[in-house]
Amino acid sequence: MTDSFSKPTNSVARSMLKTADIFEAIILKVSAVCCWSSALLIAVIILNVTMRYGFNNGLILFEEIQWHLYAIGIMFGLSYAEITNSQVRVDVVASMLKPKTVLKWEIFGAVFFIFPTIFVILFNSFDYVANSYMLGESSSSPLGMPFRWAIKAAIPASFILLAMAVLARMFRNIITITQKET
């Protein structure tokens, strides 16, 4: 069976492959930036622990920064995991199926489960972020972080990237299924 990385002969398949390549390149660039949130998270945790237990002076600001950095890593890491095929899945079942059947199930799952979920989250998250911005929402703690809308904006941004990743994967699966075996 051929894979989607060989040159497709169909013009539709070529455009699908080009779109998948563009989406994956964008996701890899965003992921390269967001991966530093983990290093920053470790530094902030060490600093917070040192401040709290070494100097008896923990700051709410550091705790909130930890939550935000963790959210960035997880939310944007979803799309990276999808395009690198490093997400958690049930390989026990997939190992008993034919490769093309696995690809068909992935397409089915994307169309009937993942995309509707992404749509619902995106549909609701834009108002969520806009309301937070219009209200000037900030932390309820006196020394907490302002601009709560900024971290809430990670929700639609990360789910747009996830939609791109799932679409890229689906395009590659469709190309693989429809190509003739050589």
Rank of each mutant, 00 (worst) to 15 (best):
T2Y: 09
D3A: 06
S6A: 14
P8G: 04
S11W: 08
V12C: 04
A13V: 04
R14G: 07
L17Q: 14
T19N: 07
L28W: 09
K29W: 12
C34A: 14
W36E: 03
W36G: 12
S37D: 01
A39E: 03
A39V: 13
L41W: 07
I46A: 09
V49M: 09
Y53M: 02
F55W: 05
N56R: 08
N57T: 11
G58S: 07
L59C: 03
L61S: 08
E63H: 03
E63N: 12
E64T: 04
Q66N: 10
Q66V: 10
Q66A: 09
A71K: 00
I74L: 13
S79Y: 01
T84E: 03
S86R: 11
R89S: 14
V90N: 15
A94Y: 09
M96D: 11
K98C: 04
P99W: 02
I107L: 13
F108L: 15
A110T: 08
V111A: 14
F113C: 13
I114R: 05
P116G: 10
P116A: 11
F119Q: 06
L122A: 06
F123A: 15
N131C: 11
M134T: 14
S141Y: 11
M145W: 01
P146R: 02
K152W: 07
K152L: 14
A153L: 14
A153F: 12
I155L: 13
P156V: 10
L161Y: 06
A163F: 04
A165S: 11
V166L: 01
A168P: 04
F171S: 05
R172H: 06
I175Q: 01
T176R: 14
I177R: 02
T178N: 15
Q179H: 11
K180T: 15
E181W: 10
T182R: 09
T182A: 14
